[in-house]
Every structure is written in C-alpha cells, then in structure tokens.
Amino acid sequence: MGDDNQGPTLRIFASPGRYVQGRGALARLGELVADHGSRPLVLADDVVRGLTEQVVTDSFREAGLPLVFERFGGVPTRAEAARVAAVIGDGGHDVVIGLGGGTAIDTAKAAGDDSGVPWVSAATVASTDAPTSALSVVYTESGAFESYRFYDRNPALVVVDTQLVAEAPTRFLAAGVGDALATWIEARAVRDAHSHNMVGGLPTRSGTTLARLSWDILWESALPALEAVDRNLVTPAVEAVVEANTLLSGLGFESGGLAAAHAVHDGLTAVDQTHHLAHGEKVNIGSLTQLLMEGAPTSEVDAFAEFTARVGLPTTLTEAGLGDADDATLDRVVAAATAPEETIHNLPFAFTPRDVRDALRAVEGVGRRARARAGLGEPSAPDHG
C-alpha cells in the first residue's frame, strides 16, 4: 500500500505535525492554526457548524484570523474534494480545516492536497482514526468504498475537543472503539506477514506497539468511558479512549498497517443493506471475520465478540442487515473485500474467496453466542423504513 519507491526493506513511521486534545481544545483552534496560515477555510456540515460556530468565531477573533466557513456536502467523494479545492483557490485560502468527523476531515485533506495548502483536522467526535493520517477514504456518491487516496504529508495539526466528544451521541465513541480495536488485530498480522504499512514501508516497532497500546487502553477503559459519555461527562477514561481511538489507532493503522478487518469493511459498503452502519461498526464485523479466518483461539474470538457486544457494536450479520443474505449478496461483499488493491492481501497466509465468505457467515453464530453470554438478547435487524 502507499508509495513503494523507497523499496521494501525500509521501515517508515508517519505522524501529524502536532496533536492537541482536551476539554475546550477547540477554543484554542485560532492560535494553533495561525502557525500554519493567515486565511483559513473551515469545512463543516450544518450540524457541526451550529454546534461550534460561536467558539470557533471567538477563537479566530482572538487570534486575528478571518473566519470563512464552507458547507461540507456530507460524502467524501472525488467531486466534493475538487469542489472544495476550487473554493480554496478562489478565496485565496492558505490552510484548510476539516471540522467534524472523519468524512469532513478526509475531504479537507483531499482538497488541501489538490490546492497545495496544509490541512488541519479538528475532530468533534472520536468515531474514527482518520484525523491523524496521510490518507483519505474516497466513497462513491451512493456511499460505497471507492479507493484510498494517499498524500505525501500528514495533517499539520490535529485538535480534539473532548467536551464535544462527550456531548456527541455515545454511538459515535463506540464506533471509534470498533475502528481502533481492529488496529492491533491488523497490525500484528501485517507484522507477521512482513507486509507493507499504509505509507509504503515495513512497519516500525513503534507503529506496531502503539497499535497494541490502543488495544490495551480500550479493554481497560472503553466501558466506563461510554458510561460517562452517556451522561456527557469528561473523565480520565474518556480522555484515554479518545486518545486510543484517535491518536494511537491513527498512528498504529498507518504505520502498523491494515489487513482483513478494513478490507471486509470496504466490502460491506458495496451492498446497500449495510449503509445504516457507521465505519467502525462495519469494521467490527471485519475484525471478527479476520479472527475467524486466522483460526484464532475460540477463547480469544469469544472474548472479543462479547466485549464488543457490550460496547454496543454489531457482532452479527443480522445487525448488519445481512442476516438473510444469500450467497450472491455475500459474494459481492467478498469480491470487493478481496480486490487486488485491498489490504486483506497483507494477511500472512493464503486464502480463497470461499474462505472469506465462510468466515463472514460464521460471524453470526459467534456473535449470537456472545450476546447471549452478555445478556443482550437476540440481535435485531435494522429497520430500513
């Protein structure tokens, strides 16, 4: 994955220029951005703008920066990135800020790259590990995965306001836990296969170790953090999980590498039945699929399924909208997940498309048993109205 010009023997680690996290961090956005430009453009959807406009306005005024918002269209497509890049050029902006979740942040990266200006990630949720990385996930207009887009630099700055994270729906933080738990599952597979990470080199020990640290923090702190966020509270557990979801998982996936969990996520986006799921929710189905493909010990698979069910993540195909899917539907998922450019090929063993489909089907039984052990009852299929 990424740029292989450096050759296969080099180990590469990538990171953003600066990472700032804490309650009220957004109030410092202006002074932090001022180090990178004097005419910023802030990309945000209407909901995020409504929640943050006052604090961002005050922050930019104190820093002596002009404030220009641009409305994010909602889907990180190539066309949306090109549109925002045109706004940057027409307005003479010299830095772009993605404000909100992973889709706005990924679009700001793409637009910044197209325009030749630095980009800043200002996260109001901790639902993905997108903010720190030098890549974007590009989707089609219908919401299906299209490709990864790689850049030669990471965000100049990442700002995460944990009070905003705590005030967002708890499901967002839970989805981030699903995204981040996959990081270690995938990084250890990439390490064992001597495969490339997302920046075109072999993983560094630090990248793989940060992936494991994210995992350890989440097993310790995810459940109390989610309980706190249910009440809009910022506790040490919340701070720890936000760091694990955003910084540690971001560094871990980019420099440690991806494998089957995210490839299965990409495959799931190819069918309409799963579009109700957040990124990290689909990734959790992918993590279970990878563990089953690996033949991981039953105790490990069952513990992971039960823990993520308690977190509130889907652990069955039923919850993903695929409980009654026929082989043809799952074959569409598998075909997308095993496309030649996909990260599933970083696994340290050979497999067939049938192996992937069988593992994906086996998730249902594993997830149902886990829900029963956790006292969560039968899984519910989504109501598509």
Rank of each mutant, 00 (worst) to 15 (best):
G256W: 10
E294I: 12
S214K: 04
A339T: 10
L277W: 01
V334C: 06
A370G: 01
R83F: 04
R354D: 14
V42W: 02
G280L: 06
T269F: 03
H194I: 11
E70P: 02
V158W: 03
T274M: 08
A336T: 04
V356L: 14
E306A: 08
A174N: 03
A337P: 00
D302I: 08
A180L: 03
D327E: 15
V301H: 05
R149M: 11
A156S: 10
S59F: 07
V20W: 14
A339N: 09
E31K: 12
A182H: 08
S115E: 01
A228D: 12
E31A: 13
D331Y: 01
P348W: 15
G367Q: 07
D331M: 08
E239I: 11
H262Q: 13
G100L: 05
T128V: 09
F349V: 03
A337R: 04
V84K: 00
T9F: 15
P169G: 11
V138N: 01
Y139S: 08
R373M: 07
L247E: 03
R332Y: 00
V159H: 05
G375C: 09
H194V: 10
A261D: 02
V47N: 14
T57R: 15
T107H: 10
T338D: 01
L67F: 09
A166Y: 05
A25D: 10
A86C: 07
